[in-house]
Design a protein around this nucleic acid. Sequence first.
DNA 1: TGGCTATTTGGCGGAATGACCAAATATAGA
DNA 2: TCTATATTTGGTCATTCCGCCAAATAGCCA
Lengths: 100, 100
Amino acid sequence: MSDRERYTYMAAVMKALAHPTRLFIIDELEKGPRNVSELTDLVGIDMSTMSRHLATLKQVGIIGYTKVNNQMIYRLLCPCVMDMHKCVVKIKEQEGKRES
Amino acid sequence: MSDRERYTYMAAVMKALAHPTRLFIIDELEKGPRNVSELTDLVGIDMSTMSRHLATLKQVGIIGYTKVNNQMIYRLLCPCVMDMHKCVVKIKEQEGKRES
DNA sequence: TGGCTATTTGGCGGAATGACCAAATATAGA
DNA sequence: TCTATATTTGGTCATTCCGCCAAATAGCCA
C-alpha cells in the first residue's frame, strides 16, 4: 500500500466520522445494538437520512448489522473509535495554551 | 457544553483531518517545521490550495505558525493527532475479521 | 394475495469542498 | 522606490454532502 493510498484510506475513515450525527450514532451504539428506528427517534431526522448515515459508517467498517425479520440491528464493530474521541478532547483542552 | 455542541465540535476536528493532503501535512510537520513552499513542493499542488489546507488545520488548532520575514513556518501543535492515525490503522486491520 | 412495518433508494435543491488561475498583500534587498 | 519572493485571498467551476419527500423493497401476518 503506497503512502498516497494510505492517506486516502485514512481520510475516508476520518470523513465518515466527520459529522455530528454519525458521532452520536457511535456513542449510542457503544451502549448497545440499535435498530434504525430507535436511532432515528433519538436524533430527530428523517429515517432515510439516518439510513444513509449508517451506510456511510458501515462502508468504512466502523459498524455492522444483523438482519432480524424486517429490522436492521446495527452495532459498533470498532470500539477503538472512542480513542479518537479522547484525542479530540485533548486537542480542545490545549486550545487555550496555544501561542499562535 | 451541550452534547450537540460537543458532537459538532468533534465533527469539525474530524473534518479538518478528512483529506489525504492534510494528513500528509500532519505527518510531515511531525518531522519538523516547514514553510508553505516546502509543503507545496512535496505534495505537488497549487500553493494557493496548500495555503487553504493549512488554514483549515490551523483553524481547529492542530497546527500553528511563526512568521519569519516573508515566510510562514508551520508546525504541529498537537502530536496526539498521531494517535488517531494508529486508531485508523486498527480499523483497517480488523476489516478482514468482520462478520457482516 | 393484501396490508402493515421497517428500511433503503432515487431524486431534488441548497450548501460546502477542493482544485485552479489571477490578483492582492507583505517583506527583504538593490 | 522598484523588484523579487512568499503567501494569502477572490473568483470560478465541477463535485460531493446532507436534508427532505416519494417510491421501491423486504419480511411478517391475516
